[in-house]
Structures are given as C-alpha cells and as structure tokens.
C-alpha cells in the first residue's frame, strides 16, 4: 500500500516478444498449474463443497441420522418462519455480534495505535497477543470462575469498593454482554495485530507532512490513519464479524443458553436441534439460513467499506 506507481500502459509493441515463445508453452503452464491446484481442489471439494451441498439437501428433508432422510420440500423453512426460538436465537446472536464487534474493533484499533507509538519492545507487543494463545474453552472457564457470584475474584473486588456482587452469568441482562466481553478480551490482541500490520504500511512521510501543517494527534488519526487503514479494517471486520456469528464454545461451557434463552445463540440452537433432538433436517435449514445471512453481511460490508480500493493514492 506504499505509494505505488501505476503501471505504465503497455506500449503498442509490448506483446511482440511473447509471440516469439514456442507455441506449446502456454498449454504446458496449464498442465503444471492443474497439478498444483489438485490438492487444494480435492480439499475444497471433499471438505467444503460436498458437505455444503449435502447440508443444503438435508435442509429439505426430515432427517434423524438413524433413519434415512425423507424429502419434505420447504417444510423446514416454513417451520423456521414461525419458530420463536429461531428468531430469538437470531436476535441474541445479532446482539452479541454488535457488542463484540463494536467494542473489539474500537479497542483493537486503540491498542494497535498504542503498540505502534508507545513501544518498540517485541515483548510488550507480543503480550497483547497472549489471551489469543489460550484455548477458547479454557478462557471461558477461567472467566467463569473469576466471575462466579460467590467465590469469584471479580465480585470480591467489587465488594471491596462497595458494589453488590453481580451474577454475571445468571442475570439475563448481564449474561450475553459478559460473554461478548470475554471474547473481546481474547480476540482483541489478535485483531490489534492485524490492524497494527495495516498501520505499518502507512508511510511516515504522510504523518510528517501533517505535523508540519500543525495537525493534532487526533486530527492525524482521524484524517490519515483511519482512511488509510480502511482496506485492512474491511478485511478485519469481515473476518471478525463472520467469526463472531459463530459464537458457540464460550456459551456452551458457561451458560448453556440460559438463563431464559438470553444466551441461546444460533449455533447453540443448531447444535441442540441436531445432536440432542436428532432433528438434522431442521438444523440444516437453520445452517443454510445462517450461511445466507453471513454471505449478505460480508458482501454488504465489502461494498460499504469499498475494500477493493485504498485512499492511499
């Protein structure tokens, strides 16, 4: 993203040398390319395409795994429209994504700027990444213990400053934000790292010029950093929003969807339908809908953030 000289338009005679190549060469390239593409293609077909198509097929069936699937047309989708638990799950998931992504992005950008400006120490920069190295389930469990109503250290500290203990996972109003913030804590270092990499690509001359013009640090951040960071931010957002929609493990090991459905996110509902209620057909329909939602969200994000182009020119 450094200042790029646009490639010169090809001169009229530029193609001429290519004609000198032996005519068999392009086909030879193709064959070599095919060989290199085979492993990736096999992986894609076996692990992504076939399961996805099968899942889409199951969504049109009544399938309990233990008996062969029976075609039921669009019944599963009709049922979904009237299923209050589905809409609740989508609402809960949306709420989670909003809290998780807004807080995480703001914190990560702040952290990345701090890392770039305040320190050159690899140790300090690396420390920000530490939570990300801990497995999700362990992070969830550790926070589960720390936020415990009776023995959790957080409530002990709150008590010291005169605040009543809070049932972080037991109170329907607190449970989802608590889970969202735990995941912010885990992922902010990693997100900050991606943003940090983006910051490194912004040429220092731009800041120097702005300083000469007397721009404040905030003005520089707003008018230089953010616009030049936009393509990176777009990528980060697409990746983190998609990941955020897939929240499951933290909920599964802490609240299990309760209290009163306050944390029953869509993935938990799908899992429960498929593996507890053996209703794979309906669970597949929900997965297909989730896929469509994620696809639309990603496309809208890319469009809104004009990810393909940089302001850096």
């Amino acid at each position: 993203m450094a200042v790029v000289t646009p490639p010169a338009p090809p001169a009229p005679g530029a193609r001429a040398p290519r004609r000198l190549r032996p005519s068999g060469r392009p086909r030879g390239d193709l064959r070599a390319a095919m060989v290199f593409l085979i492993p990736a293609t096999v992986g894609f077909v076996v692990f992504y395409l076939v399961p996805a198509v099968r899942g889409a097929w199951f969504s049109l069936t009544d399938y309990s795994v233990l008996a062969p699937p029976q075609f039921v047309g669009l019944d599963n989708y009709r049922r979904l429209v009237d299923d209050p638990l589905f809409w609740n799950a989508m609402g809960v998931t949306g709420y989670y994504v909003v809290i998780n992504i807004v807080v995480q992005t703001v914190v990560a950008v702040g952290l990345a700027v701090l890392l770039q400006r305040m320190t050159r120490s690899i140790l300090v920069r690396g420390a920000a990444l530490l939570p990300y190295f801990v497995a999700n389930v362990v992070v969830a469990l550790v926070w589960f213990f720390m936020l415990d109503y009776q023995i959790g250290i957080v409530n002990v500290l709150l008590g010291k400053v005169g605040i009543d203990p809070q049932a972080f996972f037991g109170d329907p109003a607190l449970a989802l934000p608590t889970i969202a913030l735990i995941n912010v804590w885990r992922h902010m270092g990693y997100t900050a790292l991606l943003v940090f990499a983006g910051l490194q690509t912004i040429p220092p001359q731009v800041y120097e010029a702005a300083s000469l013009d007397g721009a404040s640090a905030w003005r520089q951040f707003r008018s230089i950093t953010l616009p030049l960071l936009r393509p990176v931010l777009a990528l980060v957002l697409v990746v983190t929003v998609t990941g955020s929609f897939q929240i499951f493990d933290t909920v599964a090991v802490t609240t299990g969807g309760g209290p009163v459905d306050a944390t029953r996110v869509i993935y938990l509902y799908i899992y429960d339908l498929a593996f507890a209620q053996l209703d794979f057909g309906y669970a597949s329909a929900l997965s297909v809908v989730l896929f469509a939602v994620l696809l639309i969200v990603a496309l809208v994000q890319l469009r809104l953030l004009r990810a393909g182009e940089s302001d850096n020119s």
Partner: peptide, 15 residues
Amino acid sequence: PPLPVATSGIGTIES
C-alpha cells in the same frame, strides 16, 4: 437464593 445467584454459584454440593 435467587435464580441468578443459584445458577452462577459454584456447585450446590460445594456450597
């Protein structure tokens, strides 16, 4: 105890 307290505490047997 209220439900949020009961469900977020350590196990009942430990309590």
